[in-house]
Simulated scan of single mutants.
Amino acid sequence: MVQLVFVDVDGTLVGKEGVPACVWPAVEALQSQGVRLSLITGRPGRGHALAYARRLDPMGLHVFESGAVVLAFSRDPHSPALHPLLV
């Protein structure tokens, strides 16, 4: 069984007209089956890319700037909201 899927942004998650309406229900269906989703992109970890990552998995690891930055969203409510694992 697939446990983790990395999702690219430009041309995969986001098309010419933005994120297609069918994407988020498909994401929810995968999550309900226990599949984790992580964003992987050449974009920096802010703005729309960060919002997409949070929506894919608010507690996950996400890769930005073509692998130069890996962000881990915090699971501890007393720690910062996100921190870099690799810079």
Rank of each mutant, 00 (worst) to 15 (best):
G60K: 00
M1V: 12
Q3G: 03
V5T: 03
V69D: 04
V14P: 00
L85H: 02
G18C: 06
H78D: 15
G15Q: 15
G15W: 13
G34D: 08
R36H: 13
L61F: 14
H78N: 14
V23S: 01
V14W: 05
R46Q: 14
L39C: 01
D76G: 05
D57Q: 09
G67W: 03
Y52P: 01
V69T: 13
V19R: 09
V27A: 11
S74K: 07
V19L: 05
L61M: 12
L30W: 14
R36V: 02
S32H: 08
P58L: 09
P77H: 06
E65M: 14
D57W: 13
K16W: 06
L56R: 12
V2Y: 13
W24C: 03
V14D: 05
L86A: 00
L56K: 01
G42I: 08
P77F: 04
L82M: 12
G47C: 11
K16I: 09
V19K: 10
L30F: 10
D57P: 02
Q3M: 03
Y52A: 04
R54V: 10
M59V: 09
F6W: 06
G34R: 05
E28R: 12
W24P: 00
P84Y: 03
L13C: 07
S32I: 03
M1C: 08
R36Q: 13
A53E: 11
R75P: 00
K16H: 10
P20M: 08
R36W: 04
L39I: 10
A51N: 13
A29H: 11
